[in-house]
Design a binder for these strands. Structure first.
Length: 277
DNA sequence: ATGATGTCCTGGGCGC
DNA sequence: TGCGCCCAGGACATCA
């Protein structure tokens, strides 16, 4: 489900409303998520205060004054909702509810349960296996030609697969990989070993542009994603290739958008302006 | 080590 | 209306 722009939107929304709230009750459903809940999940952070909310890759990190953070990943279908009132009406697939002071609540809902909610000591976050192999943040200054070139060295993967691999660059999922490659006018099938200097530079720019524009639009709302306040993002109305099978290309006005499969994920590209050579 | 494939799950949409 | 099939914003494990 959510890629970096959606997670970033959620984090910005939560940051406005959660700081200094105290956790007074934690509910979890009987179903496990992708990773089992941390031990003492329902009691560990009781009475702690939320002191920060931030994003790492596609993870939402809610930091408490107990020196521990709540780590949330939304998987494909997860949602995080905020309510300015005590949450009583449980919906199907509500798996975790944090009841906070001032009658606020945060609700984690995830039909497919591919996500996770964990508590991790702040000092252990980067040693944790969820985080230790993550690549660079796309808005980092260090995402530059040198970094990119070093990462693609000796690799044979397609560029789309490379972009979606969190060990290279974090936060890019299937939608934005498609959009980034279209903006860069590079075929998703192109092997990273054939990318030239110019293409790499354009790609780096395209990553930043697409993700930034998506954040400005509040993310993309297809089926599952809505911001914690219930608002829908609208970047989907700016999609140039994703979900545009057989439509004309906005970019070159000559080609048509093709839908195909690459690495078992639906892949959209313009047959004219994203040629492999 | 790398890349391809399978797997965890539920629900929506489609064709019959 | 109902059934079976395929598809879905992710991330891993496993295998050659």
């Amino acid at each position: 489900m959510p890629e970096l722009p959606e997670v970033e939107t959620i984090v910005r929304g939560l940051k406005k409303v959660l700081i200094y709230s105290k956790i007074i009750h934690i509910y979890k459903s009987k179903y496990n998520l992708r990773i089992s809940y941390t031990k003492n999940f329902e009691t560990e952070l009781l009475d702690s205060k939320i002191i920060n909310v931030y994003r790492l890759a596609k993870y939402i990190i809610i930091e408490t004054d107990f020196g521990k953070s709540i780590i949330i990943h939304l998987g494909m279908s997860g949602r995080l909702l905020f309510q300015n009132s005590i949450y009583k009406k449980h919906q199907k697939h509500d798996h975790v509810v944090f009841h906070l002071s001032d009658n606020k609540s945060i609700i984690y809902n995830d039909p497919r349960r591919f996500g996770l909610v964990q508590f991790i000591k702040n000092s252990d976050i980067f040693q944790n296996k969820l985080f230790k192999d993550l690549g660079i943040e796309p808005f980092s200054k260090d995402l530059n030609y040198k970094y990119f070139a070093s990462k693609i060295k000796n690799k044979n993967a397609s560029i789309k697969q490379f972009l979606m691999n969190n060990q290279n660059i974090v936060g890019i999922g299937n939608i934005y990989a498609n959009e980034i490659l279209h903006l860069a006018k590079i075929s998703p099938f192109k092997s990273v070993k054939y990318l030239n200097t110019h293409e790499i530079k354009i790609l780096i720019e395209s990553i930043k542009i697409i993700l930034n524009n998506a954040i400005i639009a509040g993310g993309s709302s297809l089926k599952d994603y809505i911001a914690p306040n219930g608002m829908l993002g609208n970047f989907q109305s700016y999609f140039k290739v994703y979900n545009r099978e057989n439509k004309d290309c906005f970019n070159c006005k000559k080609g048509r958008i093709i839908k195909t499969t690459l690495c078992q994920r639906s892949t959209y590209y313009c047959i004219y302006c994203q040629k492999i050579n």
